[in-house]
Each structure stands twice: as structure tokens, then as C-alpha cells.
């Protein structure tokens, strides 16, 4: 399938590419129906696109992501990835959280091949070391392979977590506030890295964030959620050329998107 590209060389955005992830009427209540975390939502992610979800704290963003990743069952609705329903964890889904969660008794490289070790055993994990080294180089961690993970800084640990997510070559990446524990400088840098990785692998990605500018900067489409029980109140397509650069963040178009999303969030919060 020829990927349609715009005059600016924009990769396929939400409107004109093949859908890979489809959520229909997905909702979640916790505690025998006492806590309604998520109202029924519909989300479609198209191949190679980058989407983000933004919304007030506690509106069910993490819940949505866990349902998509197949680690929490939805109360209603269905999740389909690449034509097959998601009913449990899958290796074509890569996931990343706010905490790097590396295991201190493992070296960096052993942490990275852990998903392979879990799914295919120790021999396969050893065979994946070459692969892991390549990815480590991609995120600038070359030379830290045999360092124990408690000796890594926060930013380095989060980069190692990216490697661990990428080692199984997932088709989609689900990111739950992956860089929100980092300082602003490393965070901007990591966002550029993330864009580069997604573009080079043409991976489909969904990012949860509390930062409006981060959402606009990275995304082809931003899903705005209302406060709990969460529902999607708007989907904004971001029509900025790729690759995005930090210079764009001061452009008027960027500012207009930020403003639009901010007012939507303000309205959603006081409903």
C-alpha cells in the first residue's frame, strides 16, 4: 500500500491511512461498578501515526492504555489490533511507564533483553544481545551495556526502558507519561529522540501526557479527555510538517493549537 504523503512530506495522518488499532465503546468501571473510570470511548490509531491523549488527572488515561495493552480487561467494548481482538498481553505491543523500572541485579543489556527472556527463554535472550547493542547505540547508551542499572541516571534509565520496549520490535508503542519524571531539558531531548525512533521504525504510537506542548509537538492527532469519568471530548489533528523541530514550538500555528487544546481542557474540567 502506497503511503499517501502531503506536499510537505508529511507522513500519513489520521485521515488517510490504514487503521491498525480500533477501540469501540470501550469503558471501565472499578470496584464492582462503583468507580466509573472511563465512559465508552472510540479511538482509532492509523498506521505509522503518532497520537496522544491529554486530560485532567484521574480521568482514566492510564486505564485506557492498560486496556489497550491487554493487561486490564474492559468492562465493555472491544479492542482490535491489526485485525485480531486484544485479549491479553501481546508482543507486538510495546509499553512504557513513568518509572523506568529497571532491575538492579541485571546489567543494562540484561534488562533490555528481559522481554525476550520472558517470552522465548534464556537462549533467545542471549541471541538478542546483538540486537540490544544496536538499539542501545540508537538511544546513545553505547558503552553502558554491562553497567548495573542502579548506576544509571534517571534519563539514562528511561532511555534503557525505551530499548527494552523496542527489543521485541513492537508494531505499536503505548507510552504512559514516559518522560514526566525527567527535567525539562532532558525531556525535550527525549521527545526528539522519540520522534526519530518512531519515524525510523514507522511505528504507531500513543502517548499519554500532561503537557499540552508535548502533545502538540509530537502528535499527528491529540485526543482531549474530560475529567472523571473520562470520555474523549475532542480530537485535534495537528497539521505541522515532520520532522518537528524545537523551533516550531514558537511558531504561531503551534501556539494556536496549544491555545485550542487549553480552552478545551478548561471547559472539560468544569463540566
Amino acid at each position: 500500500m502506497a503511503s499517501p504523503t502531503g506536499p510537505t512530506g508529511t507522513p500519513p495522518t489520521g485521515r488517510d491511512a490504514r487503521p491498525v488499532y480500533e477501540l469501540r465503546g470501550v469503558s471501565k468501571t472499578y470496584g464492582q461498578g462503583r468507580i466509573e473510570a472511563l465512559k465508552p470511548v472510540d479511538v482509532t490509531l492509523t498506521e505509522g501515526s503518532f497520537s496522544s491523549v491529554i486530560g485532567p488527572s484521574g480521568c482514566g488515561k492510564s486505564t485506557l492504555l492498560k486496556i489497550m495493552a491487554g493487561v486490564v480487561p474492559p468492562t465493555s467494548g472491544r479492542v482490535v489490533l491489526d485485525g485480531t481482538p486484544v485479549t491479553g498481553p501481546r508482543r507486538d505491543i510495546g509499553m512504557m511507564f513513568q518509572q523506568a523500572t529497571l532491575f538492579p541485579w541485571r546489567t543494562t543489556i540484561e534488562n533490555i533483553v528481559l522481554p525476550i527472556e520472558i517470552r522465548d527463554g534464556r537462549a533467545a535472550a542471549r541471541a538478542a544481545h546483538a540486537d540490544a547493542r544496536e538499539i542501545l547505540e540508537l538511544v546513545g547508551l553505547k558503552g553502558f551495556e554491562t553497567v548495573y542499572s542502579h548506576q544509571l541516571s534517571g534519563g539514562m534509565a528511561q532511555r534503557a526502558a525505551i530499548c527494552r520496549m523496542l527489543i521485541t520490535r513492537p508494531q505499536v508503542l503505548l507510552l504512559d507519561e514516559p518522560f514526566s519524571a525527567l527535567d525539562e531539558i532532558s525531556r525535550d531531548f527525549m521527545n526528539l529522540e522519540l520522534q526519530r525512533i518512531c519515524m525510523s521504525r514507522s511505528a504507531t504510537a500513543l502517548l499519554i501526557t500532561h503537557s499540552i506542548s508535548e502533545a502538540v509537538f509530537l502528535s499527528d492527532r491529540v485526543h482531549v479527555m474530560s475529567s472523571r469519568p473520562g470520555s474523549i471530548i475532542a480530537e485535534i489533528d495537528i497539521d505541522l510538517p515532520r520532522p518537528r523541530t524545537t523551533d516550531m514550538m514558537v511558531s504561531p500555528a503551534f501556539g494556536a493549537y496549544v491555545q485550542q487544546i487549553r480552552s478545551l481542557l478548561d471547559k472539560g474540567a468544569f463540566q
Binding site: 492498560k66 493487561v71 498481553p89 511507564f97 523500572t101 520472558i118 517470552r119
Partner: peptide, 11 residues
């Protein structure tokens, strides 16, 4: 976090 991570890896 560690529990969730192991869950996503299908452990």
C-alpha cells in the same frame, strides 16, 4: 510498576 511491567511482557 514492576508487576505491571511483567504483566505487559506476558510473564
Amino acid at each position: 510498576n514492576a508487576r505491571m511491567l511483567f504483566k505487559t511482557m506476558g510473564a
